[in-house]
Design a protein around this nucleic acid. Sequence first.
DNA 1: CCTACATGCTCTAGTGACTAGAGGTGCAAG
DNA 2: CTTGCACCTCTAGTCACTAGAGCATGTAGG
Lengths: 140, 140
Amino acid sequence: MKNITIGEASRKSGVKVPTIRYYESIGLLPEPSRSEGNQRSYEPADLRRLTFIRHARELGFEVEAIRALLTLQDDPHQSCASADAIAKARLVEVEQRIRSLMALKAELELMVEGCGHGRVDQCRVIEVLADHAQCSHAHH
Amino acid sequence: MKNITIGEASRKSGVKVPTIRYYESIGLLPEPSRSEGNQRSYEPADLRRLTFIRHARELGFEVEAIRALLTLQDDPHQSCASADAIAKARLVEVEQRIRSLMALKAELELMVEGCGHGRVDQCRVIEVLADHAQCSHAHH
DNA sequence: CCTACATGCTCTAGTGACTAGAGGTGCAAG
DNA sequence: CTTGCACCTCTAGTCACTAGAGCATGTAGG
């Protein structure tokens, strides 16, 4: 037997113990077999699935997207067009998010630079927030 | 009287009606006076405060940070050092988030490029997700 | 064999920042 | 007077966890 406990699975996959149980509860991870004392016992396949999930979450995929990707993975004869579509959609999201964060960064930099560390009534941080027209970059 | 209803305040500030009521409930916005028929009646100052909040939220400030900024704004004789610190902290966060999103973007692009649109067992999207070691960029 | 003590179990509730819906009231136009 | 929209309160749901209570189990040392 190379089955492992939930704690070990957590250490090896980098997913916290309560999160593993949560993934089971929402059906991302199959219910594992149990030890005599009712403790979860994970096989190598479960660990791979868990690592897949963690990696996908780190890449910002939503749980529903991961569910779809896992279904694809479970049937390797399917076309991978859906997987490709999911990844592409995520890529577009990420690119958009980067653009808006760059605009935001520019605006924050201006605010911070403009702050003369005096009193609030001369503070550019407060001023810019209060008056949207002072934004030099359209970010929305 | 230039007082306005919640719907008008919503249109002018760009904050949705239920969100305005939510801000009131958490104490970001003061309780406005009411009309005879118990409807909220907003003054220009409220509208300015609402616009301040919306702008700060768009810049990604958390509600607690906004609460602090509003307290500063309410007392314009204070030093603006705290406002500056809040903005700087947010700037650091944004810069970090941009860096990690760029790494992520690179990885997603590789995945999408590598997908030959064949079957799942040859799909790079699935493969990379399953085997973290294939990541070409350390993003975590 | 006993005792600590870490690890496991289930269950409920909380997080942030809203959003949705039910079920009712106010108000202006036709 | 009636239609219909905007407003009211209140509760519950969203996402992806996270925290905590109150127990059971597993393991290492004495």
